[in-house]
Design a protein around this nucleic acid. Structure first.
Length: 188
DNA sequence: TAGGCCATCTGGTCCT
DNA sequence: AGGACCAGATGGCCTA
């Protein structure tokens, strides 16, 4: 990174003209040299730190892109901003969790009825419901109906702060993602 | 043109 | 000592 070769550093640092008086001149030169070297070292460290910081932010952005790629958005949607991505993901996770919980609940009750007939049958697990609850398997209107009580408490929605007028908000995104029942102060 | 979003730089702090 | 992380500052780009 540093554009300075050791030779360059050395050249600046140790110009040695012919046989100067040993003590005085030498001390003066040593001081000047160390200041120059110090400045260059400082600048070099800064450049390296900047480089690391740039890489770190690029990694962070890559992770954010990966997160965007698994969120249920639509091709014609504008790219989610960083904060929108985080809020959307937060609500999406919540919605999926709720879906699993509700599905688990309903299947358990069905299972209990069947248990009366088949005493040794295993109750269903959430894992086996995953494909029932993948975003693609539920239409927006189904999401709406699933979470209609939720959307009535929109004032607590963490996504209320998303810009209005975004197309995915208006019609495309599941209601549960736009209106979570929980207040998440850190996301408001 | 104001405001939002973003990338980058920078100095401080904490950790290894 | 050096790296990781963080927050503030700054400037560029875009859009309403």
């Amino acid at each position: 990174l540093s554009g300075l070769s050791p030779r360059e550093n050395g050249a600046v640092a140790s110009p040695l003209p012919s046989a100067p008086p040993p003590h005085k001149a030498r001390r003066g030169r040593t001081k000047a040299k160390s200041e120059v070297v110090l400045t260059k070292q400082k600048r070099n460290r800064r450049m390296k730190a900047n480089d690391r910081e740039r890489n770190r932010m690029h990694n962070l952005n890559s992770a954010l892109d990966a997160l965007r790629s698994v969120l249920p958005t639509f091709p014609d949607d504008a790219k989610l901003t960083k904060i929108e991505t985080l809020r959307f993901a937060h609500n999406y996770i919540w919605a999926l969790t709720e879906t699993l919980r509700m599905a688990d609940h309903s299947l358990l009750s069905v299972g209990q009825q069947e248990l009366a007939r088949e005493p040794f049958r295993q109750p269903p697990t959430t894992a086996c419901l995953l494909e029932l609850t993948s975003p693609g398997s539920i239409s927006p209107c189904e999401w709406d109906s699933l979470y209609s009580p939720v959307s009535q408490t929109g004032s607590l929605s963490p996504t209320d702060s998303l810009e209005e007028g975004r197309s995915y908000q208006a019609a495309d995104a599941p209601a549960c993602l736009r209106h979570s029942p929980h207040a998440f102060p850190e996301f408001v």
